[in-house]
Design a binder for these strands. Structure first.
Lengths: 244, 244
DNA sequence: CAAGCAAAACAAATCAGATTTAATATTCGG
DNA sequence: CCGAATATTAAATCTGATTTGTTTTGCTTG
């Protein structure tokens, strides 16, 4: 899982993360968090001073923010912060910034709804396109889920769950669905960490994952989609009855 | 419909489209089309010369391409073109470039699969969130579809169809689904223009759109989702039997 | 000859200053 | 009061210099 979602946060071996990307990250978070509300106008030379860098660095950061729909640079005016309606809400960095800010709940909700539509289709497609290796990974992930469900290791259970879903999306053979592997992983993590989640994963959920893997392996798209739909329905139920 | 998809192509009142965005567009298309295959290395000063602009302009364009995952700038090496597996495939410009290039078929297929998952969920959500105005727009669009289906004006039919689906996605209240309004419109246009499409739209399709609008208006999410699913199934059938 | 280390070379990254351009505000003439 | 000419503003572009991180080269040493 080459987690693009973490590119701005990850800290490889003490490697300094380029000035421009640090400025980009700072301003981006300010916009997404609402600290810089829509309509706010910034000036380039005001920004270099505040960040202690040269104009070209700020300029490139602003350019990227512009390309993400977060700001708009107009002559004579300055750099204007845009309302969320014009953001590229599928940009991995925008998603990351939203998840890290006050909009986290809303972002998880939106992602969950997208996931609800996307995953059954992905399961159906995977039944037609999954490679033996991918099937193996998915079956292995289900085994891990079963093991950690019994041992009560929620973190390990989550990792296996994420691996299962990311592999399934990749196996769909659709690059757009595959690109959503990371965000679906975020949804799963969000449920485990933040929201109410049974301290012991539901054994039925594990069985349903096995059903998906089996259906995919045998090439039965309809069954794969149905089982995936059941997984999602089970998850909604689990949220409603946290004590179960 | 604020068509972000067209931002690089649209030509407002003779307004020169900024040097940097022209360079961005040119290089972006070359990468996406495969004219610049993955692994190709470019040098900044080679690019200024080729495009007749200054380094700063090229630099900013490269930064944006980098942020889209199309290229990667490394010291000592240059600017390396990345494989499609690292592209931000949900970026509106990447989608547009793919639609305009040799990957058009593949892009339409992928978008169609995404749409298949997304729209039933959007219909269900719209039943809970749609405003009276949005319901009015959708009903009006259905009327237009019926009119133009009989008159045989495929272009006008397409426009009403696009309006219907974009409004539905917006009415879902989910900003990520709403952001897909443009690309769903592209899928519809792609079917009308390129692929095989009955010269007279199927009356059943129009009725199903009416069913969706009605279900949304009455707040019946399940019925809305089912009707939308039927629309998509009908569309697949229409593709398989073009003569009907 | 092989391994390890220092130096050179390379291209991007950053900085700094000047000039150009487009949009807005202001002023002036009617 | 209105429209055209003008001034102003800040981004856009250009240019050259400097810095930094990587890679290769070449030298030294065992």
């Amino acid at each position: 899982m080459t987690s693009v979602l973490w590119q701005a946060v990850a800290v490889p071996p003490a490697r300094r993360p380029a000035l421009h990307s640090s400025v980009l990250d700072t301003i981006g978070r300010q916009v997404v968090s609402g600290e810089l509300p829509p309509g706010t106008v910034l000036r380039i030379d005001q920004l270099d001073e505040r960040h202690g860098v040269s104009r070209s660095v700020v300029r490139e950061a602003v350019r990227v923010l512009d390309s993400m729909g977060l700001v708009e640079a107009r002559k004579r005016l300055g750099v204007r912060v845009l309302p969320s309606s014009s953001w590229n809400v599928f940009d991995p960095r925008v998603i990351r910034w939203r998840l890290d800010g006050p909009g986290r709940e809303q972002q998880l909700l939106s992602l969950g709804e997208v996931r609800r539509g996307i995953e059954p289709v992905a399961a159906e497609l995977a039944a037609a396109h999954a490679s033996p290796e991918q099937c193996g990974v998915m079956v292995g992930a289900v085994v891990q889920m079963a093991v950690h469900a019994k041992s009560g290791d929620l973190e390990a259970y989550l990792r296996a769950d994420q691996l299962f879903h990311a592999t399934l999306l990749a196996a769909s053979g659709n690059e757009m669905l595959a690109a959503l592997g990371d965000v679906v992983g975020e949804v799963l993590a969000g449920r485990t960490h933040h929201d109410l989640m049974p301290s012991t994963p539901n054994p039925i959920a594990v069985r349903l994952h096995g059903d998906v893997a089996e259906a995919v392996q045998s090439g039965d798209g309809g069954a794969a989609a149905a089982a995936m739909q059941a997984i999602i329905a089970e998850a909604s139920d689990a949220l409603r009855e946290p004590g179960a």
